[in-house]
Design a binder for these strands. Structure first.
Lengths: 146, 146
DNA sequence: TATTGTTATACTCTATAACTATA
DNA sequence: TATAGTTATAGAGTATAACAATA
């Protein structure tokens, strides 16, 4: 018979993960607010800017691990703000490519810098090599299941 | 003038953190469901079980980084499920101590094991020493700001 | 006056189901 | 029949404000 010493909540990786995530998301949202963005809409904009020829909403959904129906709303928001456009795809009339406008690219740059700066508050105590290790571990967690 | 090479989204620690957190929370919620709990109510129960003499709701709010008004609802839930009780504090008639019932302690045990097992899916690729490092880094992120 | 707990409200995020138009 | 996008809805999480009882 094994003795189970219940682990304190402050040692629970799930608890720490969600709390740290909350901190960082909160700080990032605050920084993105002046650019009219939040974390999720910002993520869509970043991906659209990364892809040279735009991305389909389906690709965005997969990349962000979001349901396609959520991507619709986020893209709607960005379109309304004039940061991206929906373009008809040549090969398949069902798919609509999300491509950034010139303004979208500018905002993405400025918002990116603001977000990077804001995240220094919670992440300031971590050195560069620690951040690399953290990034590596988080990436493995994300890919472990889906 | 400095050249800013915009960082890809998949390297963004904030993005990775919130995505990894989502994975773990989802897996944990699924495991806790059969015990009638979710991550937040489970956290309250764990803290109540940890403290020998119970905790005030204010202390719970601080420990969980939640607003006191949210703690009220979570405790209501646990009371309705018969897992904790609100006891009048002797020293201060304003404060109400949250103390686990015998059933609450049993459920906390079982739920804790289920949660630990469930988290192995996303965390399985991390060794023990890596988990220690991760725990350390996340703790520093959480304490950096508040 | 300050603090504990409470009620209320609004907004964001998450999760599903169902529908349309194309393929 | 399968896939891309869309609409709708409900539940959970987050964020504030205001209030009563007590200190």
């Amino acid at each position: 018979m094994e003795v189970h010493m219940a682990q304190p909540l402050t040692d629970d990786l799930g608890f720490l993960l969600s709390r740290a995530s909350g901190q960082v998301v909160r700080a990032t949202n605050a920084a993105l607010a002046e650019h009219g963005l939040r974390v999720r809409s910002y993520s869509v904009l970043v991906l659209a800017c990364e892809a040279a020829k735009g991305l389909s909403q389906r690709e965005l959904a997969t990349a962000l691990a979001l349901d396609p129906s959520q991507v619709v709303l986020l893209v709607d928001e960005l379109v309304a703000a004039g940061l991206v456009e929906r373009q008809a795809a040549e090969s398949d009339r069902r798919t609509r490519l999300v491509v950034p406008t010139a303004e979208g690219c500018r905002v993405r740059e400025a918002a990116g810098e603001a977000a990077t700066a804001a995240v220094e508050a919670p992440l300031g105590l971590l050195g560069d090599s620690e951040r690399d290790r953290l990034r590596d571990m988080l990436t493995r967690i994300c890919t472990a299941t889906a």
